[in-house]
Write a protein that binds this DNA or RNA. Structure first.
Length: 1091
RNA sequence: GCGCGGGUGGCUUAGUCGGUUAGAGCACCCGGCUGAUAACCGGGAGGUCGCAGGUUCAAGUCCUGCCUCGCGCACCA
């Protein structure tokens, strides 16, 4: 049998840390899963974080929402497995290690040794693992960190290989040569979602260059923002439909700034529409030429010999390209085949020579120009211009027309901040464009929260899908399992067994190979060591790439189970997953790669529901980032307000998908308001329960037989719980939790407990006291369950003390659909689910009446303030006018209002008059523009009673409009001279106007009672100051002057209320040193002594 | 430049289908209540609802344009 023990003061932090130990000892997490092991599965997939950075508060937010849903679904009876995961490959890890070991180039890494480097990476990924683990445990994110999936594990890599082979076999994986954003510092190209991470606004020089025609004195003017690509120029593209102008310089302009220029008489060709933008000289237009007429004309190379002509007959000629526009530049596009996507495609099409003028290290190759050879291209802008201006005899002089700084967003490396170069390179791609329709289809089936992320942002991304550049010329990652011979024959290896087989085959063919054991490390450089053999007997080397690390995490749904190599078929029953939840920044990241992999490998979506969280901003609305140093340390709050308050704050601060301005004061507020209040309610119950030896297993009084107050709070609990649940199912966790908090603070604490205090003070056993205890008991238990998914600590302490069991093993009070046989996470029997709900009876009439009663109690206080009558001085009578019959609440109301009796008064006119107002919704359509005038007419009417009668009789026409009863609203106001007020409940036709009137007359009896209450309150306050036990008795002396008579009954009442064993009332002056106060002209002194 | 989401007292925010006096919380001031907690109740002060137009009897809400913040896309020549 469980009997609650007393609660004591709240120390949230030690409460939580003590529970962490308890949970650990009890294996609470495992038990919570075990408790629903027969339930329908609800599959959650953890997006793997990288543990080579310190976790911040923004990570806590994501984990809070993951945990919330998993705990909630578990309580609903679903089996929710939660495997942890770590993302361990990729550039961030390499960069970190490179920095630490000072290996900032690929050469130095290879010099250092790839094995040693990768060993360092393997170690580095765990740098902050313990910090992550501690954070995860402290916030009570229940996830299995003891058996996580780790992307560097051989099993994981093997599954990735398998997936790649599926793509390869479907011809969705191909080797290509494309212009990609490339970072020479990291030696790696990027896919579009990584490039998106690094756009920065920069001001760079742009140049207008003269390309001199070979058979003509004129030059074609072209523009570029990347002067370093000019040595690679092999063509000029014009728009066939664009009109170009040949113009002759008439005179020098005034105030020329910068380098470049043109002689008078020189002739330039450019798009006619752009002349004004580009030309600084006054010119004469000699001729207008359609673009198509320029095509085929040849011009002199800018840097003769920089690019060999080869067998190209189109090099250094004007080419036609329909993508050329006149929105900026000159309408002529300088084409350097290797350094622009359009350039490359055009070059391939028309047969331009494709040679690099820039090496993979970002420096010019030898033989370009003596001033440029071997230099980093981004530092050569100036030299290129100098050369073109004609300072060097090796090139034709005066080819620079103009320089102009240009402000634009340019992609930068998201790791090193260096500008990326568009660079033609070998790369591997996944043919995402081939499965675009399927991507769109699958995305349509996903339940996105919020829906606009799926339809808008993500949908847009997919509609513009590009082939996924998936290979990286790096070291630390999942190696690309493709081997290739010199003729281009390829093999994709999909498993270790296959690798072993192929190695054996190669050995048999006479190719030397190291051993390939079953536990061969699937990383570089080990896998590079194997040479396979092609069907034609030629040696095959591995393509020297590793995978984009986003590919790894995209494989998580199956690679975490080592699919298809595991034998338990865990994967088949857990795919696609039911729920994922990450920050909105994963739209192009994980959300995409999951879908990309599942579509190409399984022709299936990867997830059914996706909660996309808003960004976490600091208190000033700035994004939290390491570089800004504005990351909030979660421990600041774990150690102050605790994880409960931190989590509750996060959920209630706004919609999950909205950006959250993380405000430390908000956490404090949540603690003080929500958790302290909840604790004190609990404490009130637990302390008396312990004192009285309350046994929750005694047969409780049936709810119907309990007091109205009990029935009310139980009904209200039911209503609140249902709405809370609705909020959860519609992803409106914030609204749900705000409303629940309101229930706890206002309904439970400020009304139910406040009104119930005296019931528990009663020392004798009584049905009423028992009813109150059972009610509180039930409310607290249900509340604990509702709160548990969001803030799992305090409620577990409460639940354990009240029931002896953990709340995390409890059923969701609104129903357990997961426990229904044959249910799935998507479909269950609503009727049978309803039968599993466990909520007290609902009584909406009672809820409405109580709301009115509370309104009236507040109204009473307002009346007294208006009438300047102090709260403790009783009134003889209070009148309630109109409204429902509140007789059952008269006792309650008379206490709240401090009146002797409550009466029902039906004669409204005794206290009130009416006023008429327009019902705009009804009248406006009829009255149109006159509606406001009519409103004023009604408002200003001197005899609203008569007017109302007219309206009712259909005799009222104002400004030509017949006013009907439905066109007006009747409002009641108090007549002058009454201490009264009116409350309005409901809206529109159902609005109720109820008035409260207080009798303000004094009698000696009332004055005596009021005085008694004032004295009592002072003494009680003194008792509190003296820190007296509740049961302690005292001696009291009171001296009163100019006071109303204090009747014997009231003297006794004071003694009883204050537990005074001796009390003396004197009418003379008090001795020195006693405490005193004045009330309504009376002077009271008193002395309290503990005995 | 294109798209999405914001902009409401000092701060955090609610505001449904366009409807009467824009609602809370924190902080502030005054008063009250309390064996009721870091609480509670009443009152006060504090709002050009980003700006400007428009539709309408009526706009925080709908439309257009602009400003601004965040995010995403495209930024090529």
């Amino acid at each position: 049998m469980v009997r609650p023990s007393a609660a004591g003061d709240l120390d949230a932090v030690s409460l939580e840390t003590a529970l962490l130990d308890t949970w650990k000892n009890e294996n609470a997490f495992e038990s919570s899963i075990g408790s629903s092991k027969d339930g329908a599965p609800f599959i959650f997939l953890e997006g793997p974080p990288t543990a080579n950075g310190k976790p911040g508060i923004h990570h806590v937010v994501a984990r809070a929402y993951k945990d919330l849903v998993c705990r909630w679904k578990t309580m609903e009876g679903f089996l929710v497995q939660r495997k942890g995961g770590w993302d361990t490959h990729g550039l961030p890890v390499e960069i970190e290690v490179q920095k630490r070991l000072d290996l900032m180039s690929n050469e130095s890494i290879e010099e250092f040794g790839m094995q040693a480097f990768n060993d360092a990476c393997r170690e580095s990924v765990w740098t902050y693992e313990s910090a992550w683990r501690e954070m995860t445990e402290r916030m009570a994110y229940w996830v299995d960190l003891d058996n996580p999936y780790v992307t560097l594990d051989n099993n994981y890599v093997e599954s990735c290989w398998w997936a790649l082979k599926q793509m390869f076999d479907k011809n969705l994986l191909y080797r290509g040569h494309k212009v990609l954003p490339y970072c020479p510092q990291t030696g790696t190209s990027y896919s579009s979602h990584e490039v998106a991470l690094g756009y920065k606004e920069v001001e760079e020089p742009s140049v207008y260059i003269k390309f001199k025609l070979t058979d003509d004195d004129a030059s074609i003017l072209a523009w570029t923002t990347t002067p370093w690509t000019l040595p690679g120029n092999v063509g000029l593209a014009v728009g066939p439909e664009v009109t170009y102008a040949r113009c002759r310089i008439r005179e020098e302009p005034e105030g020329w700034k910068g380098r470049g220029g043109a002689r008078v008489g020189e002739e330039l060709i450019l798009a006619k529409d752009l002349m004004g933008e580009v030309l600084r000289h006054h010119v004469d237009i000699i001729e207008e030429i359609p673009g198509s007429a320029l095509v085929g004309r040849s011009y002199e190379p800018l840097f003769p010999g920089a690019v060999p002509r080869g067998d190209s007959d189109t090099a250094w000629t004007v080419l036609s390209a329909d993508w050329v526009t006149t929105t900026d530049g000159t309408g002529v596009v300088h084409t350097a085949v290797m350094y622009g996507e359009d350039d490359y495609n055009l070059g391939m099409e028309v047969g331009l020579p494709a040679y690099h003028t820039v090496g993979m290290n970002g420096h010019f190759v030898p033989g370009i120009h003596p001033q440029l050879d071997g230099r980093y291209v981004k530092e050569c802008d100036d030299s290129v211009m100098e050369i073109l201006v004609g300072q060097n005899e090796n090139v034709s002089s005066g080819l620079l027309y103009r320089e102009k700084s240009y402000l634009h967003d340019y992609p930068h490396c998201w790791r090193t901040d260096h500008p990326l170069l568009y660079y033609a390179m070998d790369s591997w791609f996944v043919r995402m464009t081939a499965v675009k329709e399927r991507l769109l289809e699958f995305n349509d089936g996903v339940e996105w929260a919020p829906d606009w992320v799926g339809e808008g942002r993500f949908g847009e991304w997919i509609r513009n899908v590009k082939d996924w550049a998936i290979s990286r010329e790096r070291y630390w990652g999942t190696p690309l399992p493709v081997w290739r011979d010199e003729d281009g024959n390829m093999k994709c290896i999909g498993s270790i067994a296959e690798l072993q087989e192929e190695v054996a085959k190669a050995k048999a063919a006479g190719i030397e190979n190291p051993d390939c054991p079953a536990d061969v490390d699937l990383h570089r450089p080990v896998v590079d060591g194997f040479t396979l053999v092609s069907e034609h007997g030629k040696p095959m080397k591995r393509e020297p790439f590793v995978m984009d690390c986003w590919f790894d995490s995209g494989c998580a749904p199956f690679a975490q189970w080592h699919h298809p190599f595991d034998e338990e078929n865990t994967f088949d029953s857990s795919f696609p997953v039911d729920y994922i939840c990450e920050g909105v920044d994963q739209t192009r990241g994980w959300f995409y790669t999951l879908l990309a992999v599942s579509t190409t490998v399984f022709d299936s979506p990867a997830y059914k529901r996706c909660l996309s969280l808003g960004l976490i901003l600091d208190a000033e609305g700035k994004k939290m980032s390491k570089s800004k140093g504005n990351i909030v340390d979660p421990w600041d709050h774990f150690n102050r307000e605790g994880a409960d308050a931190t989590r509750w704050y996060m959920v209630t601060a706004g919609a999950p998908w909205n950006p959250l301005k993380f405000d430390s004061n908000g956490v404090r507020e949540t603690y003080a308001k929500m958790f302290l209040t909840l604790w004190n309610v609990y404490r009130f119950h637990a302390d008396y329960a312990a004192l009285d030896g309350f046994d929750p297993e005694t047969q409780p009084l049936p709810v119907e037989e309990r007091s109205r107050l009990d029935r009310w709070i139980l009904s209200k609990l039911h209503t609140t719980a249902r709405a809370y649940h609705e909020g959860f199912t519609s992803w409106n966790f914030h609204k749900a939790c705000r409303d629940l908090e309101d229930f706890i603070v206002n309904d439970l604490s400020n009304w139910y407990v406040r009104r119930s205090r005296r019931r528990l003070w009663d020392e004798a056993e009584s049905n009423d006291k028992l009813a109150c205890q059972h009610t509180l008991h039930e409310v607290l238990i249900t509340l604990s369950k509702l709160i548990a998914p969001v803030s799992p600590f305090m409620v577990d302490t409460i639940h354990r003390n009240l029931t002896g069991t953990s709340v995390h093993l409890a059923d969701w009070p609104v129903g357990t659909p997961g426990s229904i046989e044959g249910a799935t996470a998507d479909v269950w029997d609503e009727t049978r689910c309803e039968a599993t709900t466990n909520l007290p009876p609902q009584d909406s009439q009672l809820e409405n009446e109580m709301e009115l009663v509370r309104e009236l109690a507040e109204t009473g206080r307002r009346i007294r303030i208006d009438a300047q009558r102090r709260q403790r001085l009783p009134c003889a009578e209070g009148f309630i006018v109109a409204g429902p019959n509140l007789e059952p609440y008269h006792d309650l109301l008379s206490e709240e209002l401090n009146v002797e009796t409550i009466s029902i008064e039906t004669d409204l006119d005794r206290f009130q008059q009416i006023a008429l107002a327009v019902n705009f919704r009804a009248l406006a359509p009829k009255a149109k523009g006159d509606v406001n005038a009519i409103a004023n007419e009604l408002k200003g009417n001197e005899d609203p009673e008569a007017l109302l009668a007219d309206i009712k009789a259909g005799n009222c026409i104002i400004m030509g409009v017949a006013i009907e009863e439905s066109d007006v609203e009747v409002r009641r106001t108090e007549r002058d001279g009454f201490a009264a007020a009116t409350v309005t409940l409901g809206e529109g036709d159902e609005a109720q106007h109820v008035s409260l009137v207080l009798d303000m007359q004094d009698t000696p009896e009332l004055l005596s009672k009021g005085l008694a209450r004032d004295i009592t309150r002072r003494i009680q306050s003194k008792r509190k100051d003296l820190n007296l036990e509740i049961e302690a008795t005292i001696d009291v002396d009171v001296w009163m002057t100019n006071a109303p008579e204090l009747f014997a009954d009231d003297q006794e009442w004071i003694a009883k209320e204050t537990r005074a064993s001796g009390i003396a009332f004197n009418s003379d002056n008090a001795p020195e040193g006693t405490e005193n106060f004045d009330v309504d002209g009376a002077h009271i002194s008193y002395r309290v002594q503990s005995n």
